[in-house]
């Protein structure tokens, strides 16, 4: 089976957001990057599918040379091949999806796996966009996946329950936390990954459809009220919720 996984290179979850001088993006100074957590789950699922059915797992990331660090992590987990699509100009999800869909068309995978959302812009768009661009079915926020003889049974999260979705390969599967527990790279995996070549391709820039006019930090909340230090504070808390917050 040919398995293609999209992985994004994103600021880690501890990042303190500071707005750059342009007033539209975050200041990259001092920011550490990581493999997007949902994409780590997508990689793990790809590896599990390969273990079940043989074949190869290719990881692709769109960005700059810096994305190679994230691709190496995926290689260290056990992926066979990594590709970086290089474009340093800003893109929105539509532009990202276009380049990834073009690559996928050429590679023609049996299954595409990606994450639910990039934890930088929290767009949650690329998987659905790519699927539509390629005319493939997509299943999002997947927490359980079974692929047998080309037939897919997936469980996806919805409010207050789960949906069981049936589909067929080729398809795009969009991973949610809970789908699996990503493995840690083994020492051998890390050593092997260092030796593997990362294929580079330059892709042409594309004008974003979503234009960021300004970025700011949310206004800090004024300090709250400490109502007390034991259960004797409860009546006062309930009064505040009733009279000030008007909730109860």
């Amino acid at each position: 089976m040919k398995i293609l996984v999209f992985v994004n290179h994103v600021p880690d979850t501890e990042t303190k957001v500071k707005v750059s001088a342009d007033g539209k993006t975050i200041d990259p100074a001092g920011v550490n990057y990581m493999l997007n957590p949902y994409d780590e789950i997508a990689v793990e699922e790809g590896l599990k599918l390969r273990e079940k059915s043989s074949g190869e797992v290719v990881v692709v990331s769109l960005g700059t040379d810096a994305n190679k660090e994230t691709l190496r992590k995926a290689l260290a987990m056990g992926c066979d091949k990594a590709v970086v699509l290089k474009d340093s100009s800003p893109r929105d999800s539509f532009g990202v999806a276009r380049a990834l869909a073009d690559y996928a068309k050429e590679y023609s995978p049996d299954i595409i796996l990606c994450g639910k959302q990039s934890i930088d812009y929290d767009d949650a768009q690329v998987g659905g966009l790519v699927a539509e661009m390629l005319g493939l079915p997509s299943i999002s926020v997947v927490v359980n996946l079974d692929v047998t003889d080309g037939a897919i049974v997936a469980e996806r999260e919805i409010e207050g329950g789960h949906e069981i979705v049936h589909s067929r390969l080729p398809a795009v599967i969009i991973a949610q936390k809970g789908l699996n527990q990503p493995r840690y790279p083994s020492l051998k995996g890390i050593m092997d990954a260092k030796r593997k070549q990362i294929e580079e391709r330059v892709v042409s820039a594309i004008k974003p459809r979503v234009e960021v006019l300004a970025m700011k930090k949310p206004s800090a909340k004024p300090p709250g009220k400490i109502v007390g230090t034991d259960a004797s504070a409860i009546p006062e808390l309930v009064r505040l919720l009733h009279e000030e917050a008007k909730i109860i």
Binding site: D120, V210, L213
Partner: peptide, 10 residues
């Protein structure tokens, strides 16, 4: 964006 640590106008 950034899980609510930033707000963008688009």
């Amino acid at each position: 964006v950034y899980a609510g640590k930033g707000l963008t106008d688009v």
